[in-house]
Design a binder for these strands. Structure first.
Lengths: 202, 202
DNA sequence: GTCTATAGTCAGATAGAC
DNA sequence: GTCTATCTGACTATAGAC
């Protein structure tokens, strides 16, 4: 019985091992920042030595890219699911806001990396592409809301998108998952302020 | 005639030189990020050699702290001036939002450092203190608005503050001072959305 | 696959000449 | 005050044993 066989019978052991590294990297990069965290820190967290990481990844950069690409692919599905079964455009926008806020808890580490190290990870090919996919999904929803008359027509859809997302994304900088305020309370507050702010005056 | 005398007759030459370094550091740290930028980069930008910086500063950390403390002291005065002569609490809040947005143009570099490298600069003594001073100023204004009945009373002042500031602060990530959209247009859009969102329903 | 060992580079900071 | 020169340590990445 080899070490390989013991780790996982059905699937190749390398795949599972790669996942362990990716999870370790998410934690370490989120905690210390991408440029300050070292590949040794990641290796420690994954219970291996730094040299061994290079069997799975070409570079430190390729590790963080994999970490974030995996997150984006999950998040895009979450957004699409949130839109399914919504009544009207205003309802769809509210669901996007709620989902974005929930992700600050469920994917805290990935969002911290994205925000803190945007300068380094933003230009990576796999990220540019997925980021724009998410932006399109929001813009489509907002534009439909404007066209339907549910959202105010005096403000550009992209400006609305940026204002809303700015408010939502920075929640991660102060929200404490173990604090007294729950994420559902934050969702209630922010949807109240932001949706009231962009709704069409009747 | 010594080099010292030539630089400035009345005031000590060292003071002016220190300002040159601080300006160079603001530019370099904003451009590359604090952890990636090197003291050699700062020295290059200030037209000196890296060793010479240590005549004026104890460490790389102390340079960035000075850079930001200087900014905060300017910004606190700007906020107080913005509040002067305002009619009511809603007007005062609108002026704070406008001033915060204007600062993303006038103090772009400092705000980029604060946001990108908050993990490293946030805990510094001189910054914690001034940051909380600014927060108090916002919270006081918002609470007065709630008490006067101008702002909605179903939402906590601190939650309002955080939602508004989140939207405002992230403008720096997409706003291009040389682009087609002016900062006054951004002010118009954001005050419209955010003030409408927090105003009391009549 | 994971290890040991190390090459190669560059960082922050200091000492002492001028 | 600013320079030259350098120390010490830490980093990413690689080579080759096992």
């Amino acid at each position: 019985m080899t070490t390989t066989r013991r780790r996982s019978a059905g699937s190749p052991a390398g795949v599972a091992r790669k996942e362990v590294i990716i999870r370790a990297a998410a934690k370490v990069f989120a905690q210390n920042g991408f440029s300050v965290a070292t590949v040794r820190d990641v290796a420690d967290e994954a219970d291996m030595l730094s040299g061994s990481l290079y069997y799975y990844f070409d570079s430190k950069e390729s590790i963080v890219e994999q970490v974030l690409v995996e997150y984006f692919d999950t998040q895009i599905r979450a957004y699409e699911q949130a839109l399914d079964g919504a009544q009207d455009a205003a309802d769809r926008l509210e669901r996007l806001v709620a989902e974005a806020l929930r992700s600050t808890v469920t994917h805290r580490e990935h969002l911290l990396i994205l925000q803190n190290d945007w300068q380094y990870v933003g230009p990576m090919a796999g990220i540019v592409e997925r980021q724009s996919q998410i932006e399109k999904l929001w813009l489509r929803t907002i534009q439909e809301g404007i066209d339907e008359g549910a959202l105010r027509s005096d403000i550009d859809a992209r400006m609305m998108y940026r204002t809303i997302l700015g408010a939502v994304q920075t929640v991660i900088r102060w929200f404490d998952p173990r604090g007294r305020v729950t994420i559902d309370e934050v969702i209630a507050v922010q949807t109240a302020i932001l949706l009231d702010g962009v709704r069409s005056p009747d």
